[in-house]
Amino acid sequence: MTRAAFLLLTVVSAGVAASAADIPLGERKSGYDFMAPETRAMQDDDTANPAMLWVLDGETLWQRREGSAGKSCADCHGDARTSMKGVAARYPAFNAARARPVDLGERINICRTEQQRATPLAFESKELLALAAYIGQQSRGMPIEIADDARMRPFLQAGQDMFTGRQGQLNLSCAQCHDDNWGQKLAGAAIPQGHPTGYPLYRLEWQTLGSLQRRLRNCLFGMRAVSYPYGAPDYINLELYLMWRARGMRVETPAVRP
C-alpha cells in the first residue's frame, strides 16, 4: 500500500473529514437560541406550542388499527413513551433491506406498508407529520446520536458534499450561510447554524407543521437550485449529514421556529 493510500484510508476511517470552516462542537447553537423571547416561550409551553396539536393526533394514530393487517403501531411497539424513547434521536438510520439510510418519515411508511399492509402516508400529510411529531417528542431532551460506521459513511459523505457544494443560479452553498455566516442577518433575519434539532416543527412562516425536507426545499428555492422530489435520497443524505453535524445536541421536537 502506498503512503498516500494509507493516509486516505486513515482519514476515511476517522469518519467524515472535518473541514476548516466547521463550527467547533462547543460553539454550536440551536435555532432556538436565535429566536425572539416570545417565540421561545411558545416552544417552551406545551399549552402554547401549536405543534402539540399534531402530537396529540399522533398519539391517537399510534393506537389506530390500519391496513389489511389490522394492526396499530401500538400492537407491535406498545407504549410509545417507552418504546420510542430515543428513536428519533438516531434517525436517519441505516436500513439493511434497502442498503441505505432512511429517515423517520420513511421508516413510518415502511411499517405502514410492510407491517400494517396499508398505503403509505403522503409526504407532508397531517397523519405522517403527526406520527413523526409524536415519535419525535419521545426523544425530547435526548442527545442526537447518528451511527457513524462504515455502512453510513458514503451517505454521510454525500450529504456533506451537498452541504458544501455551490448550487443554483445564485451559486451558493449551504455552508456559506450556515457554517461561515451564521448570526449574520439575511434580509433582516438572523441566519441560524442549520441544526435540525426540532423536526417536524411548527414554522410561523408556514402557519403549520413541516418536515426537514420541506425546510431544505425552501433553501434550495432561495438559491434558485433544482428541488428534489420529496423522499429523494439526496434529501436523506443531507438530513443524515445535518443530524451528524448536530450530534450531541438535544432533540427539541416538536419545536417552533419563526
Binding site: 448550487q167 455566516n181 428555492f221 434558485r224 433544482v226
Partner: peptide, 30 residues
C-alpha cells in the same frame, strides 16, 4: 468570483460553471 473565488456574492451576469440551476433560471443571468 473572478476577484475572489470564495466570495458569497452571486455572479449576476454569468451562466456558465453553475450547478443544478432551477429550470426557470437555466441559461439566464440574474
Amino acid at each position: 468570483s473572478r476577484l475572489n473565488p470564495n466570495t458569497i456574492m452571486p455572479p449576476y451576469y454569468r451562466t456558465e460553471g453553475l450547478t443544478r440551476v432551477a429550470p426557470a433560471y437555466q441559461g439566464k443571468p440574474v
